[in-house]
Design a protein around this nucleic acid. Sequence first.
DNA 1: ACCGGATCTGACCGATCGGTCAGCACCTGA
DNA 2: TCAGGTGCTGACCGATCGGTCAGATCCGGT
Lengths: 185, 185
Amino acid sequence: MLEDMARPTTATHDELLAAAARRFALTGYKGTSLQDIARDVGCSKATVLYHFASKDALLCELMAPAIAMLEELDARIAAHTGAEAQGVAAEGFVDLAVRFRREIALLRGEFSDLLQQPTFTHIQQISERLVAAFAGFSDRPEARVAALVVLAGIAETCGEFLDIPDEQLRPALLAVAYRALEVTT
Amino acid sequence: MLEDMARPTTATHDELLAAAARRFALTGYKGTSLQDIARDVGCSKATVLYHFASKDALLCELMAPAIAMLEELDARIAAHTGAEAQGVAAEGFVDLAVRFRREIALLRGEFSDLLQQPTFTHIQQISERLVAAFAGFSDRPEARVAALVVLAGIAETCGEFLDIPDEQLRPALLAVAYRALEVTT
DNA sequence: ACCGGATCTGACCGATCGGTCAGCACCTGA
DNA sequence: TCAGGTGCTGACCGATCGGTCAGATCCGGT
């Protein structure tokens, strides 16, 4: 409780965060310059680096809520086994994908690159456990392929439907996930 | 027949093409410099630009075969209707994804950016028709969501299984595609 | 012996990248 | 009135980007 509430976080800070989220989602992390973000907000590039220690730090602060939810999902999956864990993973990931559409969209393709960063290394392990849960903890290549298709497909898709309301996107994603993951023996 | 056969295309040219494919797939288009490609082959950056007019031209030559197959698939889909077209699209796209795993993987996230390029604009229309065929030409958002999840999921996944042989990956992808696209009414 | 084309290179270009820094304007409490 | 912190900026830095260019090297034909 010593950091989220009661922090002033000037308006500019939040504006920069929002502008960065928009830009990163549109043109990717590497494809967005600090100049772009500054121009959107109407301040100088130096101001961006006054509010955030570095471009990486800006990304980290942007992803923090999504990562927190991902870690919580990971813990919840670990508390279940078998098909139960599969259901928890599917529902939880769809929730996460819908809620953090923009944040996930900005990982487009740069996912593996950005994970190299020491701050994000443990995310890789979490996503591996997610794939395993989606695959129903099966080693069969068909199950792992299906798991990755659904996982990547949902992550990639939710960013494309920024206009559809959550309560409509969520059941549509869940339906296709359950259909695709239905394991054939 | 005046271009593909009987062209010497020096060994360096092909090496550069192969190295670029590898690099682009690993670190993306924007994330790969001409220096990187030159270093892999063991020549100078100037040599890369001797064999290819520009970095864009290198990408175009790299994608040409995949684009040709995509255009042929588009024509084949147009020759069918309804569920028949859906099957043709699924089988055709899986074939394309498996065959051109590396080329598709390099589009990771930069897909929308690279499509801005005038050379690739018509690809956008083709992919829209592909989504429509996958959705069984339905306007229902559930169908369109499912279509995009499968399309994006396959495209994203095939690049992750560079080690699995085609004859094993193909049926696995097809199975999950048919399962996911099974339209409920 | 000479030439012309193909292949390749180092040096260089302007632009842009992420990041630093000294200092300016403003507000507030003493 | 003034000291000090906050928010912000223009000027600048080294590195790297894609791309250009003059020239070195090699090689087959005449």
